[in-house]
């Protein structure tokens, strides 16, 4: 059992988010200005959307390392197909979302049905997609994002960024699915113990595959939206999302071993990472420093929720009680 109950872990994540906001606003005045807060929401939304699928996969006891190039592929193909026009999006967006979901389903089938370890399966799919896009584009994909996508990514409704609204809707749906549906209940059960789930008559394989399918879907969605933010698709745009999507889930209080956590926590995780990211350039640090921070954050959060730590807490408590 994790040392922290589910609710406490999520509260802790939000506590960290608020503390970080306050600290940052001291370091750089103007951090809490509406414009800046809005840009935090926009950047957090991209992490949050990718991490949505990752949350489901991790709750189900797996991991998805194919996120970067599912995202990147969708971004590149969308800009190429649309060629800057809005009209073709009508078929492009559904097609690419379905393609992302299909890639996820292939991951899930390889893992759940054929027993390929999740890391190998998703890492291989990631490399294959990377190669495929490089072959297809010849290494230089340059096409601008259509206006509609740009509006979705950076537009505003009043003071609210459009993508914030998109994210909010997705977040509500994800939370509903996790907390209030049969599928959510099964996912937690499969992630806690696939054996117990099977012995309880749950559709274990189908549930695990569905998690990966969703992850492919959200990665593709995030990829298309991200082109609107950067104005175009470029190679390597998905790479940071491998670490951030996993880190956001871990910060949000999910056990990396599966069976616990909630998307509500992941949202706080996405904000924590975004604020950190925003903070570092302010301190004149580079992309490299960011990677170091992501790695350290993953290590620290999973260490704190590890069994060994729980034992240590229990030991210290006993000592104190005895002494």
């Amino acid at each position: 059992m994790a040392p922290l109950s589910r609710h406490r872990a999520i509260l802790l994540a939000y506590g960290a988010m608020i503390a970080l906001l306050l600290v940052t606003s001291i370091f750089s005045p103007g951090f809490l200005s509406p414009g800046h807060l809005r840009s935090i929401v926009v950047l957090a939304a991209f992490i949050g959307i990718v991490a949505l699928g990752q949350t489901f996969v991790i709750i189900g006891g797996g991991i998805d390392l194919s996120v970067p190039w599912v995202l990147n592929s969708a971004a590149v193909l969308m800009t190429l197909f649309a060629a800057g026009q809005d009209a073709p999006l009508l078929w492009i967006v559904p097609l690419l979302l379905a393609a992302g979901a299909l890639v996820g389903a292939v991951n899930g089938i390889g893992i759940a049905v054929f027993g390929v370890p999740p890391i190998i399966m998703t890492l291989a799919v990631n490399v294959i997609l990377q190669g495929g896009i490089l072959v297809y584009t010849g290494g230089s994909p340059a096409a601008a994002a259509p206006p509609l996508i740009q509006y979705l990514a950076v537009g505003r409704i009043g003071v609210v960024p459009v993508i914030g609204v998109v994210w909010l809707v997705l977040a509500l749906l994800a939370s509903l699915v996790l907390s209030r549906t049969a599928f959510g209940r099964q996912l937690y059960a499969v992630g806690t113990s696939a054996t117990v789930a099977t012995f309880s008559g749950l559709p274990t394989l189908r549930t695990a595959i569905a998690g990966y399918t969703l992850s492919g879907f959200t990665a593709a969605l995030a990829g298309m939206l991200l082109t609107g933010y950067s104005g175009q698709a470029y190679l390597g745009m998905g790479d940071p999302y491998l670490f951030t999507s996993i880190a956001a889930v871990a910060i949000g209080g999910a056990s990396i071993l599966g069976g616990s956590g909630h998307y509500i926590g992941t949202i706080a995780g996405a904000f924590v990472l975004t604020i950190l990211t925003g903070l570092l350039p302010a301190l004149n640090l580079s992309n490299g420093a960011l990677l170091i921070v992501y790695g350290a954050v993953i290590l620290v959060t999973v260490s704190v929720s590890s069994d060994a730590f729980a034992d240590l807490f229990a030991f210290v408590r006993r000592r104190r009680a005895a002494g």
Binding site: F243, Y294, G295, A308
Partner: peptide
């Protein structure tokens, strides 16, 4: 071994840290 964590998770994090250090030294 000490924290009883999964190898892929630990090495994923150290991959990021080592790779990040490389980028800091030489962008």
């Amino acid at each position: 071994s000490v924290l009883r964590l999964q190898p892929f998770l630990v090495t994923l994090a150290t991959w990021s840290i080592l790779g990040g250090t490389a980028l800091v030294i030489l962008p």
